[in-house]
């Protein structure tokens, strides 16, 4: 059974077809890229999957369960976490607290234990913090755990978004332009970190990115959108030579270096 399955999803805003008849599957442990020119509907697909928008038509299934139309926090709890194209951290909280918010629904609901600070509660809390620190270490942010999130550099904030998403213990991670605004060195580190996360946590990852070098290197499969329509699906080497993709997006038949 596929981890995520979208069948024939469509969404229109007024007269504009944002996404039309989009079908897509992703299996556990797969890393798939979603590319296309600006305004092609990539982020809209993320918004459909995470429940920000509800599809006009079509079906979205997570591990066989229909999730279209559920409130966003339920979809998150079903195992889907995301990052945002524009950074949306909680800037006044510490880096660690941002991750703890992500882990929020895994904190035991025991108000009595909390009030009386029982040993079990303390142990549980220590465990939670250790897990959150481990997640931060994975993204190379452990040293900055107690700084305010708003003071981090742009690249660090992007990585913190990934850490926060991971803290919700997803089975599927959606990354919306994780490398945007990063310098080449940071991009190399990010690729290594994503690879590590995937190996360690065995998640499915769907990634939107304009950096073609990164996409072509990392993804097993790529879906290309243009004007809300799927114009190509295939392995990186197939996508690179696909006539329609070159015309709509890549521009030239050599691997694009941005």
């Amino acid at each position: 059974m596929a981890l995520l399955e979208l069948t024939d999803c469509s969404l229109t805003f007024g007269g504009l077809k944002a996404v039309s008849a989009f079908s897509f599957t992703l299996d556990a442990g797969q890393l798939v890229g979603l590319i296309g020119p600006n305004g092609a509907g990539k982020t809209t697909v993320f918004n459909l999957i995470t429940g920000v928008y509800r599809p006009d038509r079509g079906e979205i299934r997570m591990q066989g369960q229909s999730i279209a139309g559920l409130p966003t926090f339920r979809i998150n709890r079903s195992g889907i976490a995301r990052t945002f194209q524009g950074i949306r951290l909680f800037p006044n909280m510490s880096v660690l607290d941002n991750v703890v918010v992500g882990a929020n629904q895994h904190i035991a609901r025991a108000p009595v234990a909390m009030l009386f600070r029982t040993a079990a509660f303390a142990r549980h809390n220590a465990e939670l913090h250790a897990q959150c620190m481990a997640t931060l270490t994975l993204l190379g942010l452990a040293a900055r755990a107690h700084e305010a999130a708003g003071t981090l550099s742009y690249g660090e904030q992007r990585r913190l978004e990934i850490a926060r998403a991971l803290a919700t213990r997803p089975k599927l991670l959606l990354l919306d332009e994780p490398a945007a605004g990063m310098n080449p060195q940071e991009k190399v580190e990010l690729m290594e970190q994503i690879r590590l996360i995937r190996e360690k946590l065995q998640l499915g990852i769907l990634i939107i990115e304009h950096d073609m070098k990164l996409i072509m290197k990392m993804c097993e499969r790529i879906t290309v959108l243009d004007h809300g329509e799927t114009i190509a699906v295939g392995k990186p080497e197939q996508i690179q030579i696909d006539e329609r993709v070159i015309k709509a997006y890549l521009g030239e038949p050599v691997a694009h270096d941005s």
Binding site: V52, F73, N76, R77, V101, T168
Partner: peptide, 9 residues
């Protein structure tokens, strides 16, 4: 919105 997407009701 961000809170809700992080699983907070």
């Amino acid at each position: 919105e961000t809170s809700s997407l992080m699983g907070i009701n």
